[in-house]
């Protein structure tokens, strides 16, 4: 019994260490576009779709990157269209349904290249490194990231349970039809 507190303290210390692990000098020319990324879960022939190259672990497991991503999500006005993840003119990002895929690289591409039904292309407007941070944060909205790295309470009006308290990606009612699938031509 007497031995537990130091162990617990060490654990807390260690996990705190992990939380604060930062890369202070990110590569100035981080490439975003070279990862092969499938937009579909099916592929012809045996073997299924190819694996994703960069799963974004470095961003998703790092509290600093996620909190930066959260700040930038507001700063670059993502919030104006996606609210605090619940959606507005853009789709909800905190739910478990993705039009263009919910993998880290899918989201990096959604931000960088834009999407045809109203998602602006931020390529050349937001540096690659910051796009990765934002993408990591977007993944934290449905808590696809470790709980201890996800952001905590807001400084502002609390719009919803904070990211680290959300259950990981629960299902919600509603369809998954993208806007493009709704338009008769």
């Amino acid at each position: 019994m007497k031995r537990l507190p130091p162990i617990a303290a060490a654990l807390v210390f260690l996990s705190a260490c992990e939380r604060e692990d930062r890369e202070f000098r990110p590569s100035p020319v981080a490439g975003e576009g070279d990862a092969a990324i499938a937009l579909s879960s099916i592929a012809p022939g045996p073997g299924g779709t190819e694996m994703r190259a960069d799963t974004g672990k470095a961003y998703e497991e790092n509290a600093y990157h996620l909190s930066e991503g959260k700040r930038l999500f507001t700063w670059f006005n993502c919030k104006g269209c996606h609210a605090n993840g619940g959606g507005g003119s853009g789709p909800a990002l905190m739910d478990d349904r993705w039009i263009y895929g919910g993998e880290f690289q899918n989201i990096v591409q959604s931000i960088g290249e834009g999407r045809p039904n109203g998602m602006p292309s931020f390529r050349g407007k937001i540096p690659d490194e910051l796009i990765m941070q934002i993408a990591g944060y977007v993944r934290s909205m449905g808590r696809h990231v470790p709980m201890d790295a996800a952001p905590g309470r807001n400084d502002d009006l609390m719009p919803r349970p904070s990211e680290h308290r959300l259950p990981s990606s629960p299902a919600v009612t509603g369809g998954t039809v993208p806007p493009s699938g709704q338009a008769p031509q």
């Binding site: 605090n84 619940g86 909800a92 905190m94």
Partner: peptide, 27 residues
């Protein structure tokens, strides 16, 4: 009504510029 037409997530009360908080049961 964008909570329904846009499939918005009712857990975020600020969705649709704050209207979703009042419309969560429309779905």
């Amino acid at each position: 009504g964008s909570i329904v037409s846009g499939d918005l997530d009712p857990r975020d009360g600020t969705a649709a510029l704050g209207f979703v908080n009042a419309m969560a049961d429309l779905k």
